Each structure stands twice: as C-alpha cells, then as structure tokens.
Simulated scan of single mutants.
Amino acid sequence: MAHYKAPDHKREQFRRYLEKAGVVDSLTSVLVALYEQPEKPNNALEFVKQHLGTPGLNAADTEALQEEVMDLRQRCARLEEENQDLKARLEPLEPPEEEAPPAE
C-alpha cells in the first residue's frame, strides 16, 4: 500500500506548488476566457499561448523583439571583432613589460 501513497503525495505537492505560483489561476482564467468566446478560435492552443504570454504582447511584437535580438547579436559580434583588431594593432605600440625585481 505504501507504494501507492508516494506518487499521490508527490502529485499533491506539485498541485500545491502550482497553486502557490499562480499557475492554476492563470490556466483557469485562460480556459474560462476560451470557453466564453462566442466564436471559438480555429487554433485553441494559439489562443492559450497569446493569453498566457506577456499581457499586451502579440505575435508582431514578439517577431520585432526577435529581430532586435538578432541585430544586437550581430552588432555585438562586429564590436568584439573590432575590439580584437584594435588590441592587435595596439600591441606593437605598447612598451614591453618590465620584469619585476627578484625578491631578496
């Protein structure tokens, strides 16, 4: 019998965790909103994704943000390359490092 109680205990812990984190309330409100739609959307999963995501953030916003991330990554890569180039050009101009005097 103890074998059957362990999974139930874990399941109950997980359920409390989801409730405490607000996941159950969020899912419930989204499903209620879907239920109350006079015309059900063709893609229920997309409806849930849109309503669970960041409020006010739509697919166009997400796409714009993804493009901005790509642009910033490319810019960062170019700047890192430029930085390496400038360091390489500066290296011959730097005075040689003096060796520290031996400890007495």
Rank of each mutant, 00 (worst) to 15 (best):
M1D: 12
A2N: 11
A2I: 14
H3G: 11
K5W: 13
K5Q: 14
K5L: 12
H9C: 07
H9V: 09
K10N: 13
R11Y: 03
Q13A: 12
Q13M: 11
Y17D: 14
E19G: 15
V23C: 15
V24S: 12
V24E: 15
S26G: 13
S26R: 15
L27R: 08
T28A: 10
S29F: 10
V30E: 01
V32Q: 12
V32I: 14
E36M: 08
E36S: 12
Q37R: 10
K40F: 02
P41G: 02
N42Y: 03
N42C: 11
N43C: 09
E46K: 10
L52W: 02
L52P: 00
L52T: 02
G53Y: 06
G53L: 03
T54H: 07
G56K: 01
L57P: 01
N58F: 04
N58A: 03
N58V: 01
A59D: 08
Q66P: 00
E67F: 02
E67V: 11
V69M: 09
D71M: 04
D71T: 04
L72P: 10
R73D: 09
R73M: 05
C76Q: 15
A77Q: 07
L79I: 13
E80K: 13
E81N: 12
E82G: 05
N83V: 00
N83M: 01
L86V: 05
K87M: 08
R89E: 00
R89L: 09
L90M: 12
L90I: 10
L93I: 06
E94N: 04
P95M: 00
P95W: 00
P96W: 00
E97L: 13
E98D: 15
A100G: 05
P102V: 05
P102R: 03
